[in-house]
Amino acid sequence: MAIRTAIIGFGTGGRVFHAPLIASDPRFEIVAIVTRDPGRASAAAEYASAEVIADPERVLSRNDLDLVVITSPNETHAALARRAIAARIPVVVDKPLGVSSAEARALVDEAEAAGVPLTVFQNRRWDGDFLTLRRQIDDGVLGEVHQFDSAFEWWAPQLTDRWKDTAIPEAGGGILFDLGPHLIDQALQLFGDVVEVHAELDRRRLGARSDDDSFLSLTHESGVRSRLWMSATAPANRPRFRVVGSQAVFTSHGLDPQEPQSIAGRRPLDPGFGVHDDGRTATIAGPHGEHDVPLLAGEHRAFYRVLGGALIGDGALPVNSLDAVRGLEIIETALGR
């Protein structure tokens, strides 16, 4: 039987990420999509088996669901997830899990007490450049890593009326809440827990209510220093990754291609999905020269492949929700809470 899935929210998260990924796995069936936006409702017609609904309560009161995916504005995540847990429906929550670590931890506790699977969509663990970097580190190519520089930047100098631009930090607004969960999670996955946090959070755009140009420096228990940049106001970008080890330096440029490919209408099972069309590579440089390293294909659909197995009792969930709680604790430290 198919895993009958409802998606709450059909903005970038639902339309560009979750729906195409879920539809690419034959074990899942999208049976409901929640959106109030008429244009997004029209886009949902791509998924013929899905009923398009305006009210999330109509979905959460159904008794025929095997999974709910929550990808609505950040401040709604916890309340909707709590409702799904109460209905005994396994739930995927887009990052961040909540707008505070206390809120997120309470969700984790409720899900555990109810025996309901709860996981968080940390899809950037399956970016092609991150997979490539992880392999190089695991193979010892860089030696002992000392510095991890990671940047996720774009150029959007004018505010919009989207909730990501209008929400205050207490409601999960700002680029630290938007991109920080990804960059922090990647750093924690590679180098372990953090013992010190330094933050520089700036508002560059006229009328900004939340940070839009931010920097974190994390000191890991392992001794590695992670330096994380995130910005909506960068006219040109730093390297996506620059990782300094005792033997070599890894450098890659540009963001993973899966998001723009999906926006352009390509789908996860299409040839070349997850691979840069320009054939770009990463580089390894050291005292004896420099060479190119092919980038592995990105595979965000691996999240749902692992989740599908977990929901039928075959393996663990793709992301431990406590990882997301730890990420929120680091964000709160950066915000001075």
Rank of each mutant, 00 (worst) to 15 (best):
M1G: 09
A2S: 15
A6L: 02
G9S: 00
R15F: 13
A23R: 03
P26M: 02
R27T: 12
V34L: 05
R36K: 14
D37S: 06
G39N: 14
S42Y: 13
A45W: 05
A45E: 14
E46Y: 09
E51N: 02
V59T: 07
R62G: 03
D66E: 14
S72D: 03
N74I: 13
H77A: 09
P90A: 04
P90F: 01
V93S: 05
D94K: 07
S101Y: 08
L107A: 08
V108I: 07
A113P: 06
R125H: 14
W126Q: 01
F130H: 04
R135W: 10
Q136W: 10
G140V: 05
D149T: 08
A151P: 03
P157E: 13
L159C: 03
R162E: 12
E170N: 01
A171K: 15
G173P: 00
L176M: 02
L176W: 00
F177K: 02
I184V: 14
D185E: 14
V195W: 08
A199I: 10
R205H: 11
G207F: 12
S210A: 15
S210N: 02
D213C: 07
S214F: 05
G223N: 07
W229E: 09
W229D: 09
M230V: 03
S231M: 00
T233V: 15
A234G: 11
P235A: 04
A236K: 03
N237D: 12
R240K: 12
R240D: 08
R242N: 11
V243D: 00
S252P: 06
L255K: 08
Q261F: 02
S262N: 10
R267H: 10
D270K: 05
P271S: 03
G274A: 01
D277F: 07
G279Y: 01
T283H: 10
G289I: 08
P294K: 04
G298C: 03
H300E: 06
R301H: 10
A302P: 03
G313H: 10
D314R: 15
V319P: 06
L322S: 03
A324H: 12
V325F: 00
R337W: 11
